[in-house]
Design a protein around this nucleic acid. Structure first.
Length: 459
RNA sequence: GGCCGAGUGGUAGAGUGGUCAUGCAGCGGACUGCAAAUCCGCGUACGUCGGUUCGAUUCCGGCCUCGGCCUCCA
């Protein structure tokens, strides 16, 4: 079995082999921390978390870096608007981001480089690019000279003539070529800046990733991931900078890009304003259900977000946890995820197929009659859940839901159940049904089982 | 205009050159005092027009529709 990944660079699926199996390297573009992450922002970290888990299970350890961009004009604007220091903004939203991602079951990356902590590396890389003739300084700016890199446009499949023809922005007068992009730009005294050979300034948008990848992971990494919209210009420019700074060594061997999350079929984006914040959704739905929803479509496909999607995801997880709850006293066998699950994930992270396999497992588990069977199926289900980053909490905890926030008094429910069971014992079914209606009215579902009556929150 | 991607049953969403996705919803049955949960069974599908083929939802081409990138954006 081997992992097959769709490589944006070649536009086809390719067998993945790490450069060095003892140190698989992966980089995913992280957030610019100037406000809350929306649910679309959460798709890459969740998707690449599944890849992270898969790589870990195969190669033991993965050097996985996800950056924090803490220098950016939008951060400056936010700080100005709120009358707060820059670092107050970036620290706050970096913290919130980490918390949100943890709530979605995303394992921390092995490194979380901050742009502001890598100014020396950024400046050094810019200097190298100037020295090698790939960049030039002009009016306090440093620009990457796109015609100096013949392979420019390869990743995004564009050619320069078309782009110039379709250009929608005014070309700055100091650019030698309209496609040239900024590596370094001057800062006015009221903006954050760092001393450099070109005066006090700050980095352009793309150079930080190139510099941090080199520093944290090395010149050529195995996998670089991010959202579809980053292919151009962000990743194209990263390729140009890094390749030229490394004498032609490629930046990344595999480029992976996730499809977009939409709302009513339209891209969710901060500029359009149609965003749902992860932080807000987490107040109304468990993080695990949100994660399940994000993985319910293949990562390269578009995914239309809706309340119904979360509701369905939650119900599906209910069913899985209900089955696990039935076998809580059975010790899971020492078995990993079934081959079908591995095969599915190996095929370009086909999470919907892996989820379908979980449905097979849960049906088999519910039908199993021997403890040995149950122990094996329980183990397979849990192992599959671990690959996807779900199903790892105590079933009872999941099924009870957040009782405290629901306003339901657990003692009252237990009391009503006891009264109902007394009525059932006395064969007073009218009273028993009345009591159950009262329980239902509280939003609680009860189930009579051989070992007693259990209850959980409905919906 | 250039470059990408998508159009599947009530819904979400995989996949395949000729039997089955799967979840949710629905229907029938079993179980239950009745339910719930669970199990068993059932149903409706592949945008459009051509081509290749014994046979296409699947391959090829045209068309239509929708979305994305080309400017900050996951």
């Amino acid at each position: 079995m081997s992992l097959i990944l769709y490589n944006t660079l070649t536009r086809r699926k390719e067998a993945f082999q790490p450069l060095n199996p003892a140190r698989v390297t992966m980089y995913v573009c992280g957030p610019t921390v100037y406000s809350y992450a929306h649910i679309g922002n959460a798709r890459p970290p969740v998707v690449f978390d599944v890849l992270h888990r898969l790589l870990k299970s195969r190669y033991g350890q993965v050097a996985y870096a996800r950056n924090i961009t803490d220098v950016d004009d939008k951060i400056n604007a936010a700080a100005k608007a709120q009358g707060a220091p820059i670092t107050a903004i970036t620290d706050k939203f970096a913290d919130i981001y980490r918390q949100d991602m943890a709530a979605l079951g995303v394992l921390p990356p092995t490194a979380e480089p901050h742009a502001t902590a890598h100014m020396a590396e950024i400046i050094a890389m810019v200097e190298r690019l100037i020295a090698s003739g790939h960049a030039y300084a002009a009016e306090g700016h440093v620009l990457f000279h796109v015609p100096a890199f013949a392979a420019y446009g390869q990743l995004s499949g564009r050619n320069m003539d078309d782009m110039i023809a379709g250009a929608r922005v005014d070309v700055a007068p100091y650019k030698k070529d309209p496609a040239d992009f900024v590596l370094w730009k001057p800062s006015s005294p009221d903006l954050p800046g760092w001393d450099s050979p070109w005066g006090r300034g700050r980095p352009g948008w793309h150079i930080e990733c190139s510099a941090m990848i080199e520093k944290v992971l090395g010149p050529t990494i195995d996998i670089h991931g991010g959202g579809n919209d980053l292919i151009f210009p962000h990743h194209e420019n990263e390729v140009a900078q890094s390749t030229c700074a490394h004498n032609g060594a490629p930046l990344a061997r595999f480029w992976l890009h996730n499809g977009f999350l939409t709302m009513d079929k339209e891209k969710m984006s901060k500029s359009l304003g149609n965003v749902l914040l992860v932080n807000e959704i987490l107040k109304t739905a468990p993080g695990e259900a949100i994660r399940w929803a994000l993985l319910s479509a293949h990562y390269r496909q578009p995914l239309d977000w809706s309340d119904d999607l979360i509701a369905q995801s939650k119900k599906t997880l209910d069913r899985l946890y209900l089955a696990l709850d039935q076998v809580k006293h059975i010790v899971a066998a020492n078995t990993g995820a079934p081959a079908a699950v591995i095969t599915a994930l190996d095929d370009d992270l086909n999470t919907p197929i892996a989820m379908a396999e979980m449905a097979h497992l849960v049906r088999a588990l519910n039908s199993a009659t021997t403890d040995a069977e149950k122990a094996k199926l329980k183990a397979e289900l849990l192992a599959t859940g671990a690959m996807l980053g779900v199903l790892q909490q105590d079933p009872a905890t999941w099924l009870k839901g957040d009782v405290s926030s629901s306003g339901v008094d657990a003692a009252e429910v237990e009391s009503l159940i006891a009264q109902r069971n007394a009525a059932r014992k006395a064969r007073d079914f009218k009273e028993a049904d009345r009591l159950r209606d009262a329980i239902t009215a509280l939003g609680v579902v009860i189930e009579d089982r051989a070992d007693g009556t259990s209850w959980r929150m409905a919906g």
